[in-house]
Structure formats: structure tokens, C-alpha cells
Amino acid sequence: MSELLSVKGLKAEIEEKEILRGVDLEVGDGEVHVIMGPNGAGKSTLGSVIIGDPRFEVTGGSVFFDGEDITGESPDKISKKGVFLSFQNPIEIPGITLGNFIKTALEMKTGERIKLWDFKKKLKETMEVLQMDPAYAERDLNVGFSGGEKKKAEILQLLMLRPKLAILDETDSGLDVDAVHIVSKGIEEYKKQVGGALMIITHSTKILESLKVDKTHVLVDGEIAVTGDASLIEKINNEGFEQFIRKED
């Protein structure tokens, strides 16, 4: 498979505290990569820095996407190239409805006005996949949504925006068994419909059950400590991260 994302020696800091200390990672077209690691290892930071979160300063290395250097680019430009980040804690935006937000994002992506009727039809169909009440489309974005509904709203955006690479930052955290099942179905649907690549940041393996994982990376203290295949997930589940932390020491 051709290379879609290439992260080389990526270093990043926030308020002069170094979080990423030289991350190397390559994701091919349509591949599924899992990022695991102990709390505070820098997993979420990696996702944020790839999509250009301005809170972080890139102090070294580079990020290439689809052959283009996107290091230091603004999030909107990176997003338009086809990168999507599903937030661990999506913010609430009073006044902007979920439907209007997605429609605007789609129009920004395509550069064209979208017919309201066509959009509403597609949105309703997609919400059905995620068992979302269509009334949520008219509600202010994430305002008063439960944790599960917020995560579903993120996956709804993923399915509507159809990016080439989706970074899912602990999309399954805080969800009950049923919600994890629905969100997993949404991710499966993304693979089926779009065939895009996935970078899944997770502590849990439930969300991975229906996916064919190509590579697993263990991030420890801002660096990839080890990369393996899907079997590494099982190993971590049984033995934890301690072996990698010790290796670091």
C-alpha cells in the first residue's frame, strides 16, 4: 500500500514542556493502526499535532500527508487535505446546530453550496446507522449531549466528511457496551464506504473487535517504544505497559 501519512522524528511541546520526543510512524492508504500507551504518554498530543493544534509547538521533525508536508499548517488546511480527528472531549458550541455545522464543513471541503434537501436526506440516513434521533441535527452542537451522543456526533461527522485518514482519540472511552457497539458499527461503515485509513488511539480493545488491525504502536513518554502487529494488543491486554516502560528506563 502507498504511504498516506509519514511522521518523522516529530517533537512537540506545550508551554515549554516537551510531550513528543521524536515520533516516527507511517500509515499506508486504508491501513488500520492502533496507538496504545500509558496515561500521559502523548497519544492524544500526537493526534492533535498531526492535525495542527495551535496549542502545541512543533520543535522538530515533520508530518507528510499524501506526499505533502503539512507540518505547521493550519487545522482547516490539513482537514481539507483529508485528515479527521475525532475528539476525546468534543466542545459544546451554543447557537450552531449539529446539522448546520456539518453542512458548513462539507461546503468548505467541496467548495460548493450543497442542496439542503440532498444534505438532509444523507444526514438522516447516516444518523440511522448510528441510531441517533434525527432531532439531534437541529440541536446546538454537543450542548446537553450525553457522553455517548457526543461520540456518536463525532462519528457522524466522520461518515459525512469521508476523510482519507481518521484519527480516533479514545472514541470508546466513557461509553457503555451498547454505545461502543454502535460507534464500532459507525467505524466499520466508514471502512466499508470510504476505505480510509484509521489511527485509533485507545485503552480498550472492544472498539477494535470488528476491524482488521495492520499495526499496533506503543507510545511511551513521547516516543514509539515498540511497533507490532495485531497480536501486540493481546499481549498488552495480558501483560500491561510495564515491560515497555522498563525498557525505556
Binding site: 493550519s74 482547516d76 482537514s79 464543513a105 468548505m108 471541503k109 461527522q157 466528511l161
Partner: peptide
């Protein structure tokens, strides 16, 4: 940042608000 992560630049985000 949230807006940007969905391809919505600053000016358009202001317009939405």
C-alpha cells in the same frame, strides 16, 4: 481549533457564530 479540524477556517467560523 474544533472548527479548523473540520475544515472551517477562522473567518467562516466567525461567520457561523
Amino acid at each position: 481549533f474544533y472548527m479548523g479540524s473540520r475544515g472551517i477556517p477562522r473567518e467562516e467560523a466567525y461567520e457561523l457564530l
